[in-house]
Design a protein around this nucleic acid. Structure first.
Lengths: 130, 130
DNA sequence: GTAGCTGCAAATTCTTTGCAGTTGT
DNA sequence: ACAACTGCAAAGAATTTGCAGCTAC
């Protein structure tokens, strides 16, 4: 049976608060604010368990390490800033993608990732993060 | 200046012959047929060099290790079959994606991956390929 | 009480790098 | 000749796992 440990709660809340996909390291950092001394292995173990039970979703951006976000959101895509490398949700979708596939192919799902500059990292912005 | 070593030639030809994205390990295996004793480090170094000089392209499928394919193709996306896991090129693009980003964000590029069934793997197809 | 959980450290896997010897030009 | 290249092995980085002690139920 699954238990409610301080560590698991801290991880869940870190992801709820962030409202964007986080790397395991970012989850660790946020959760350590609640539970000092927490180890990275605990983060990995809980992320895996929470994904299995459907509470989290794994977000894999091409060529980057996996991130995690809360599950149950509406269909959405992601935007990665080329300057600070953070990932943001994009609650929009071009739709009509089934038409792009070659004849005879059936499209069930899709991933879309936009790359560019987030509002914090515009050229001339006061203080680009990271 | 760049040299034409047997190793680099073998790597380039392995990818030309394959005509599909290969993993570094697959490249090594194919290239060792031409140059026995070649090391994996040489593969990585040359893949990187060839990508830098624009001869190869890196193909990153979500949750999978990077693959490499010959460059020089037109802007395209990928379709991964959920049955046979093969990856196909999609020579179409929805366009107009800049409008999807949140206000204040600038979009420079994008990746799109479609998931579904390729023509070989339709339900009822004779023999789905692996 | 005890099965599940935790932190630590060692193991794995994939990729990069330092080094001394080799090779293309 | 000599800088680029190579193989090897060690170093890194991300993730997983073994283990002995801790903790929620």
């Amino acid at each position: 049976m699954e238990r409610n440990t301080r560590q698991r709660t801290a991880i869940r809340e870190a992801l709820l608060l962030a409202a964007r996909p986080l790397l395991p390291q970012e989850v660790l950092q946020a959760a350590q604010a609640q539970v000092p001394g927490m180890g990275i292995a605990t983060v990995y173990r809980n992320l895996k368990a929470l994904v299995d039970e459907g509470a989290l979703r794994c977000v894999n951006l091409p060529g980057d390490n996996p991130r995690f976000e809360t599950a149950g959101q509406h269909h959405h895509h992601h935007f990665q800033c080329q300057a600070c490398e953070r990932v943001f949700d994009v609650h929009a979708c071009p739709g009509n993608l089934a038409a792009l596939a070659p004849p005879g192919f059936v499209v069930n799902d899709h991933d879309l990732v936009l790359y560019g500059r987030c509002s914090d990292c515009q050229p001339g912005a006061a203080a680009p993060r990271r």
